[in-house]
Design a protein around this nucleic acid. Structure first.
Lengths: 232, 232
DNA sequence: AAATGTGAATTTCTTCACAGCC
DNA sequence: GGCTGTGAAGAAATTCACATTT
């Protein structure tokens, strides 16, 4: 009978489900907005945002329109307000406590990465399986034994986990993390992990990125070598 | 008008431009195939590949069909052959020499990351601006002075560059890299870089990934407006 | 005049479903 | 029977273009 909810229905600022492509671009806009904010800039156009994110301006406007109408025609967007709206839509007003599993080269680099702290992500634990590493201090954290994963997650109330460990052990640690009730996982392990439906898993894979570059590079590099037909 | 050219036109093994989404999945299939190869498995079905890459099997078949018909109906794909075909399509038969700029935590982690070497990417140089770090050995490499970027890129014949440096200096180093003739760049700097048309730039951004996780986590966590209570 | 917000058109990507081959 | 390869259908994302507002 009554439609579930018309757009005007929802409390201002409470967007319904955003398209995935939009979500990832919103993070880019947010970064630009925060830089502008630091510079004291008050207004920004969709064109300027598009430029700094490397997308089209119509795309920016459509993305932002999913959050509501926060722009002013003829003027642009208020930097401070839009930054706030995006942060809220992305859930960055919550407190996120991140545990990093794996204190190898990558895990250590991540633990010290200033970008996390400055964006509202608190690194609350660093764990490893190597007895030589457990107990040492890295950054301002003491490395915990991954054998105690469950209790560390609980005592630190971590609600996100970053996996920075070898492919061989990634799945089993991942299972324990899920079992322990953490449902947001970012994996750097070069392997596909399987998780239950309700778990959010994202992957970052550096070798994959290089391979994609290789594909494009190769195609530029041999423009017409063995091509029977020159040009289009 | 006459269609440009039919698929049968192209020399076997010389694929036409692949859709971007396909390229990134091919890297996943390749990883699985190489693992199977190491295990001595000879055949694999699109279903099995789909499972290990976390996509649908029709998607796998469509992706692979862009390379040509390398499967056998009723049987599946020959692991060794398919691995070779994908590697070739991705341009991994070339020799890729990677220079890493920035020997901070992340740069060091990348320099030691075994995943690169094992996938045909040769890390040939590591550069930094810090006099305390220049000249020290990390992994197999001696850290060079980024002031000599151009000559290092030339002498090592690097054809890819990984940027692992702070946002403030990323653009200027990026410009020098492009000017020096390297057209494939993977950036870990949390900033949008602008490059000429013909340069391939990819970005990996850890803070962005966490923000996307935060968005999804928040939605699960939100005390449902019209959501069922998560009790099951 | 300037720039947003948005339906409509377009392109790209995914999924379906089944013919064809082993 | 089992599994690939692929047109056709469907869904998602992007781009266009312009009415609308300041």
């Amino acid at each position: 009978m009554i439609p579930a909810q018309t757009p005007e229905d929802r409390p201002a600022g409470q967007a319904r489900q955003l398209p995935p492509a939009t979500v990832s671009r919103l993070t880019l806009y947010l970064r630009t907005l925060n830089a502008l904010l630091a510079d004291g800039v008050e207004n920004v156009s969709s064109d300027a945002l598009a430029e700094s994110a490397g997308v089209g301006s119509a795309n920016v406007r459509k993305d932002l329109s999913h959050l509501g109408s926060y722009g002013t025609r003829g003027v642009g967007y208020d930097v401070a307000n839009l930054s706030r709206q995006i942060a809220q839509a992305l859930g960055l007003t919550h407190e996120w406590r991140v545990a990093i599993v794996g204190a190898g080269n990558l895990g250590r680099a991540l633990a010290r990465y200033a970008g996390f702290e400055s964006r509202g992500f608190d690194v609350v634990a660093l764990l490893d399986a190597d007895q030589m590493v457990i107990g040492t201090e890295i950054g301002w954290l003491r490395v915990s034994d991954v054998a105690n994963l469950e209790s560390v997650l609980e005592s630190t109330r971590a609600n996100m986990v970053v996996l920075a460990l070898p492919a061989q052990v990634a799945q089993s640690v991942c299972d324990r993390v899920v079992e322990a009730g953490v449902h947001s996982i970012l994996s750097f392990a070069p392997v596909a992990l399987s998780v239950p439906e309700h778990v959010n898993l994202r992957k970052v894979d550096m070798a994959t990125e290089l391979q994609i570059l290789a594909y494009h590079a190769q195609r530029l590099q041999e423009p017409g070598l063995e091509r029977d037909r020159p040009g289009a």
